[in-house]
Write a protein that binds this DNA or RNA. Structure first.
Length: 649
RNA sequence: GCUCACGUAGCUCAGUCGGUAGAGCACAUCCUUGGUAAGGAUGAGGUCACCGGUUCAAUUCCGGUCGUGAGCUCCA
């Protein structure tokens, strides 16, 4: 019998005979403490179960219970255990489909005539617990593909048969624990006992293979961890996220509402939300002005023919509301602002000297979304884009994209977002324009990202029909990512509308157009901001910066005077002069997340001052009203990331 | 659009095994004038989402529609 050399990454090497299992090898190569944490290993070629047999020299990299990979493996195994429990409980009429690990858990899709109910969750969890308690080993076996097809056919598992029929491997692997056998590449945890902390979270429909023409399956979602403490923490985080839900806070803080009578996916901005939005817009306009942009306004509808010329009727019609008849002519609610900006471009003759032309608009667009896709402010049917179209000469393309990225990141930073994932999306299946232009545009986007030193991922085929794009997904304080910013190069619209400029040579040339949105949609961005700040907006965009609270009716007139002075001084101030105790008013102000409370009692009235209570419960020394107004103005600037440290609040 | 769940006062939710409903908060009036996270009393508020069906009787059971939530799909 020949010998093989097995080593552990960063550790010992030893000689074994062929046929040694991973388990046996790591017994020699690792301490018992290390060994306990190993759920699988990786070699240069593949990942292996601990029961795998070694037949040639290899270096083993352990997959441990403390690694992300180990966790994924556990969750994948958890999916198998859940499927096992479901089959054991509900019998053979359950058809199992697929059950992978996801970013924060796992799911398994089942086909069963009866719907699962939340009551079933407890029963399934209980059965899973029993399986876990039995430390059932995950047994791997391989068989010829044909044999596996016959195996699953005999058990009426047509989804497995379908998967197998599409595979090209001659040999496939099956994993079994107890009587439950599943087609699986593996590897898995050594035995079910590793599954110490799991929970079934929810039930949802999911099409077989994501295709709405195929059967709708029942998808059970769950999550699993190696340590019960980690599961508890995860569930706690879900609770925390719920508290930040913009739909809940939007209602509580009176920021926005969506009304059935008006229609789903249509946002009504309440006074406080509208004020916050105006502050955001003002900031946005100022930044754009400073960066060489000009502001446009365009209508909400246009003749349908415009959308034929632009190509939207060919490529975007499913997302558009149907046409409306105006005196026998079809008009169309706009899903995008670009054709209007083109129309503005053509309003006069353009010279190469004019470029780049940077035009921005807070343009409200309407897109048909399926009812099931709507969600709070995150996905709506009418929304305002912080849109811009920049017309450049070909030679200016890359530099202008660089400028856009610069402005983009700067603005995001002011809103408290400095972490993001960047994606470069390339040509999709349905597209317009020449391959050469697509390549040029993609190269320009890449070049700008590289020059800015940003790392990004390529998202193949995810570009828009008219050009490639950069998407910037921001990460909020809970680490969730949100798609907001997008920068898209477009050779197509200039061509379709045959726009041109006169070049240095006196001849007509075609400009390149860049579409871009930074916040994406004001609605969505506002929703993200609400969740990011948990409703406690930074001072510069807080709709109410301070509220005046009197202690007794004795200071009614003084409270009014202070309120008037602050308003005049540009402070966004409210007052609460109701006949209530101070405690009560403070509680309300606190729950409304108002940053500053201005307290006026007899003492303040006598000295013409105010006592300022911070949101964090601390008081500032009494100060004159004018001084407080200055403090607000100063702190407000600081909250935008300008000049120095903010007051702790 | 599809699957499952849900829809009761402005909000958060009880309740009705079929006999047209209740709490807390918010709102109004009154008492209380109280210095840093809920003082008290009284009152007003509901076609129980909408439309049909079954029934002597429907908010409750059944069907449809609309809306919401979790997903699938899609995406700013």
């Amino acid at each position: 019998m020949s010998d093989i050399e097995i080593s552990i990454a960063g550790g010992k090497t030893a000689t074994f005979s062929v046929g040694t299992t991973v388990q046996e090898a790591i017994k020699v190569l690792c301490s018992s403490k290390e060994r306990k944490k190993i759920v699988a290993v990786k070699t240069a070629e593949q990942a292996l179960d601990v029961t795998a047999v070694l037949d040639h020299d290899a270096q083993l990299t352990p997959v441990t219970t403390t690694s992300q990979e180990g966790l994924e493996l556990l969750r994948h195994s958890a999916a198998h255990v859940m499927a096992q429990a479901v089959v054991e409980l509900f019998g053979d009429d359950v058809k199992v489909a697929i059950g992978p690990a996801t970013a924060d858990g796992f799911y398994y899709d089942f086909d069963r005539a009866e719907p699962f109910t939340p009551d079933d969750f407890a029963a399934i969890e209980k059965r899973m617990q029993e399986i876990v308690g039995q430390n059932q080993p995950f047994m791997r076996q391989t068989m010829a593909r044909g044999e596996a097809i016959a195996y699953f056919q005999a058990r009426h598992q047509q989804y497995k048969v379908e998967l197998l029929e599409e595979l090209t491997d001659d040999e496939v692997s099956l994993y079994g624990q107890g009587d439950f056998v599943d087609l699986c590449r593996g590897p898995h945890i050594p035995h079910t006992g590793y599954l110490r902390a799991f929970k079934i979270l929810r039930l949802a429909g999911a099409y077989w293979r994501g295709d709405e023409k195929r059967p709708m399956l029942q998808r059970l979602y769950g999550t699993a961890f190696f340590e019960p403490k980690a599961l508890k923490q995860y569930l706690h985080q879900i609770e925390e996220a719920k508290k930040r839900d913009h739909r809940k806070l939007g209602k509580e803080l009176e920021l926005f509402t969506i009304n059935d009578q008006v229609g789903p996916g249509l946002t009504l901005w309440l006074p406080k939300g509208a004020l916050a939005r105006r502050l955001i817009e003002d900031y946005w306009r100022n930044e754009h002005y400073e960066n060489g942009y000009e502001l446009l306004y365009t209508p909400h509808i246009a003749k349908r023919d415009l959308w034929a010329t632009s190509g939207h009727l060919d490529f975007y019609v499913d997302d558009m509301f149907s046409a409306m008849d105006v005196d026998g002519v079809d008009y169309q609610l706009k899903p995008m602002n670009c054709p209007f900006h083109i129309a503005i471009y053509t309003s006069k003759k353009r010279s190469y000297r004019d470029f780049p032309l940077r035009w921005c608009e807070l343009g409200t667009v309407y897109r048909y979304e399926r009812t099931g896709a709507l969600q709070g402010l995150m996905r709506v049917r009418g929304f305002t884009q912080d849109d811009a179209h920049i017309f450049v000469l070909p030679a200016q393309l890359e530099e202008e994209i660089f400028n856009i990225i610069d402005l983009n990141l700067h603005i995001l930073k002011t809103f408290g977002f400095s972490e993001y994932d960047i994606y470069l999306s390339t040509r999709p299946e349905k597209y317009v324009g020449s391959d050469e232009n697509w390549q040029k545009a993609t190269d320009a986007l890449k070049g700008a990202l590289d020059k800015k030193g940003l790392s990004y991922e390529i998202d193949p085929g995810e570009g828009v029909f008219y050009g490639p794009k950069i998407d910037i997904k921001i990460k909020d304080v809970l680490g969730r990512s949100w798609q907001c910013s997008t920068i898209q190069v477009d050779f197509n619209l200039p061509e379709r509308f045959a726009i041109s400029y006169t070049g240095e040579d006196g001849k007509e040339h075609q400009p390149i157009m860049i579409h871009r949105a930074l916040m994406g949609s004001l609605e969505r961005f506002f929703g993200v901001l609400i969740e990011h700040y948990a409703g406690a907006f930074p001072l510069w965009m807080a709709p109410v910066q301070a509220t005046v609270l009197n202690i007794t009716d004795n200071q009614l007139a003084y409270a009014d005077k202070v309120y008037g002075q602050l308003r005049k001084a540009g402070v966004r101030v409210s007052k609460d002069v109701r006949n209530e105790k101070l405690n009560f008013k403070i509680r309300e102000a606190q729950m409304s997340k108002i940053p500053y409370m201005v307290i006026v009692g007899d003492k303040e009235m006598e000295t013409g001052q105010v006592t300022v209570r911070l949101k964090n419960g601390k008081n500032l020394d009494p100060m004159p009203v004018a001084e407080f107004a200055e403090l607000i103005s100063r702190e407000s600037k600081k909250s935008q990331g300008l000049e120095g440290e903010e007051l702790e609040n």
